[in-house]
Amino acid sequence: MTTSIFIDGAEGTTGLEIRQRLAGRTEFSILALDGAARKDAAARREALNDCDIAILCLPDDAAREAVTMIANDRTRVIDASSAHRVDDGWTYGFPELVGRDVIAKARFISNPGCYPTGFLGLVAPLVRKGLIPADWPYTINAVSGYSGGGKALIKRFEDDGSDIAFRAYGYDMAHKHREEMKAHAGLVHGVIFAPAVVPAYRGMVVEVPLHLGAMQGDPTAEQLRAALADFFHGSPIVSVHDGSTVAELLLETNAEPHDGMELFVCGNEGGWHARLVARLDNLGKGASGAAVQSLNLMTGQPEETGLALSA
């Protein structure tokens, strides 16, 4: 028996990448709306209520509207927008943090944001273990490929004559990812978030600098690395590396899709400073790959099925 999947917003960047990951998988049947039907409310409502699992690849308001169209207690939802990431009644779709069994049983799952995925992978386990404080004023420096900005930003970077080499933004300190990061890391204070975009289609680096010497308990970079390695032990998707041998981390302009996430802990010789770094594909573990990972768990499949994880 196959599981029916309706991707609402299947022609957007995230939707297209999800469809690529599901191509050829016989355990799923895809309900597709073509042409004008994609924007027809009645057709969407019918598909949302006919499917076993709906994956919403929509703007926030449209995602909220889609949920209200579901008039049964059977259809399960993975929302790839940011509409429900801190809402009661929704399970945060980060299996490594919330538990794979929790994802498997959930009805409503909110897919994490790409930047929060990197930040939470680095910080949330260490806060839980008490190695770094929940009340620290954390800063995130991050850079992403331009595909994360949707069609408008993709067009801006890819238009003939574009001379954008680096785009920094979020200077109003009100980026919507901040609430998500604070809530799911269990922090007391909001973070200072400094995002930027470079002329690469996909990929991102998320960095959290730490002044370990100013923290109680005098944590060391090696303790942090060991704790992360223990937390993610056995994961087919998240890998932890010793940053002492890292000279540089690169993003490639034409990188292939990748659904894994690499974590690095770099520390100075005296142990006073550390740089926690995550490298991932903003369209992979940061979006479509994460949605498929949750879908796999919801349907009893190995979590890595269909994901691009080879180096």
Rank of each mutant, 00 (worst) to 15 (best):
M1Q: 13
T2M: 12
T3Y: 01
S4W: 05
F6I: 04
I7R: 08
G12K: 07
G15Q: 08
L16I: 15
E17W: 04
I18H: 06
A23V: 08
R25A: 12
L31D: 03
A32L: 03
L33I: 00
L33C: 00
R38P: 00
K39Q: 01
R44Q: 06
E46D: 12
E46F: 07
A47Q: 09
L48N: 12
D52T: 03
I53R: 00
I55Q: 00
L56K: 05
C57I: 01
D60L: 00
D61E: 08
A62Q: 10
A62K: 09
A62C: 01
A63T: 05
M69R: 08
I70H: 07
D73V: 12
V77H: 03
A83G: 01
A83R: 01
H84P: 00
G89Y: 02
T91P: 01
F94T: 05
F94M: 14
E96Y: 13
K105A: 15
A106I: 08
A106F: 07
I109C: 07
C114P: 01
T117Q: 00
T117Y: 01
L122E: 04
V123N: 07
P125D: 11
P133N: 08
N141Y: 09
A142E: 14
S144M: 15
G145T: 10
G148V: 14
K151N: 12
I154C: 11
K155S: 15
K155L: 12
R156E: 13
E158C: 04
E158D: 09
D160H: 10
A168Y: 05
Y169K: 10
G170F: 14
Y171C: 13
D172V: 14
M173C: 15
H177G: 05
H177S: 13
E179P: 01
E180N: 11
E180Y: 03
M181F: 07
M181Y: 06
H184Q: 11
L187E: 02
V191I: 15
V191F: 03
I192H: 15
A194S: 15
A200F: 04
A200I: 09
Y201H: 14
V206C: 11
L210M: 08
H211V: 12
A214C: 09
Q216P: 08
D218E: 13
R225A: 12
F231D: 06
H233P: 06
P236I: 13
V238R: 03
S239F: 07
A247V: 06
L251W: 02
L251P: 02
L251R: 03
T253W: 00
E256P: 11
M261R: 07
M261L: 15
E262F: 09
L263D: 08
V265Y: 03
C266H: 13
C266F: 07
E269G: 02
V277M: 12
V277W: 07
A278V: 06
A278N: 06
D281N: 10
L283S: 08
K285F: 15
G289A: 12
A291H: 12
P302S: 09
E304N: 10
E304K: 10
G306R: 05
G306N: 05
A308E: 11
A308D: 01
